[in-house]
Simulated assay, not measured.
Amino acid sequence: MGRLISIASGKGGTGKTTTTANLSIALGKMGYKVLAIDADLTMANLSLVMGIDDADVTLHDVLAGDAHIREAIYATSYENVFLVPGAVDWEHVLKADPRRLPSVIKPLKPEYDFVFIDCPAGLQMDAMNAMMSGEEVILVTNPEISCITDTMKVGIVLKKAGLAVLGFVLNRYGRSENDIPPEAAEEVMEVPLLVVVPEDPKVREATLEGVPVVEYAPDSEGAKAFFKLAEEISRIAGLKAKVIG
């Protein structure tokens, strides 16, 4: 049985989409069948990162009632990895009903080893509907106190809502002398630190090229961190859900 995992954060720009893409591809390389869903309905970027920018049918069409979810699933150029892209035009955003997200996404669980849901930041309605489409959650934060505390609040809300919080990714660590150290971040977050992704120019280069860093520069420090995250998620995903259940 597959795993439904939401990728969430308290603030925008923390690297949720980068994490979703790289984690999906890393797990695909490990032999898992993976579906990544761009559920950030107003800022859909996952398709651009994963190389599908001309989709005829998107998640927005599904949420507007104009298509079935299976019409919006595309094979990517990455082994074992599939994508449900979002639309980038405002007309589609206005028509999409985010309240339908859980009922659309949850039936896909048996068909994949992992379904990752790239969620909007914060706790607004569209973000909550996206996050509640999962059963487990990975939080993504940057090493700044405001970002960490906002993401911690999201984690608390999702725990109370019944999701299993697997832990958090400390992304872009080392770009400032004022970065919160990993140990301090873990103390504030009160959930396990899954991996520290260092500030790495190769990640930025990969983003500009439209290729996730685990494919673009697999020996870079950033890519190594995402491969480590994939190994950790393959080990623990599902365990906490079983305990909570």
Rank of each mutant, 00 (worst) to 15 (best):
P201W: 04
V62N: 07
M189P: 15
F168R: 14
G122P: 15
I233M: 02
E209A: 14
M132K: 14
L27T: 11
P198K: 13
R204T: 12
A75V: 04
E187H: 14
L4I: 00
G86Y: 09
S220I: 01
V49G: 01
V115W: 05
E71G: 12
S9P: 14
M128T: 14
S77K: 15
I5P: 00
A87D: 12
D179H: 15
A206M: 04
F227N: 02
G245K: 10
G86Q: 10
V115D: 01
T18W: 11
E136L: 13
G2Q: 02
R99D: 12
R99T: 13
K29W: 10
F82Y: 15
T20C: 08
L46A: 01
E215F: 09
D40P: 11
F114Y: 15
T141G: 06
P198V: 13
H92T: 13
P110S: 00
L83N: 05
A237P: 00
L239F: 12
P120C: 06
R235I: 04
P192S: 00
M131S: 11
K29F: 11
D97K: 13
N22M: 05
D53I: 10
H60P: 09
E111I: 03
T42S: 04
T151A: 03
L83S: 10
K202I: 03
M128G: 09
Y216W: 06
L163N: 06
E205H: 15
G13Y: 15
G2A: 07
K242T: 12
W90S: 12
D61V: 00
E231F: 04
E215N: 07
V157Y: 02
T14C: 11
A225E: 03
P192Y: 07
S9Y: 14
E215T: 03
V34M: 02
A185P: 14
